[in-house]
Amino acid sequence: MEIDPFIFRLSIFILSIFVGYYVVWSVTPSLHTPLMSVTNAISSVIIVGAIIAALAGSSENIFEKSNIFGFLAIILAAVNIFGGFLVTQRMLQMYKKKKK
């Protein structure tokens, strides 16, 4: 009997939760705000779905209802990607060690 590919995805999902659990516990509490902004940025990888949605269908009619939702999602995700990574970068630049 073959294993349903869904089971493989579920395995990846569950293992990632464990990886996330251990990785996040090792994040130093002083960096919890950058942690939130960077997790925000990476969860915008949902843009992958938005791009597929925007480009779906025939190239003559690219503004069907489903495409429009795709384009809107691209804008939202792009705000998050650029905003999230840049604001994280800005914060991380500020963390400095004592000058000896």
């Binding site: 569950i14 990632s16 990886v19 996330g20 997790t39 990476i42 969860s43 990888v45 992958v48």
Partner: peptide, 9 residues
């Protein structure tokens, strides 16, 4: 990518 990220976040 989306599944891993979702689980991490």
């Amino acid at each position: 990518a989306l599944i891993i990220t979702g689980a991490l976040v």
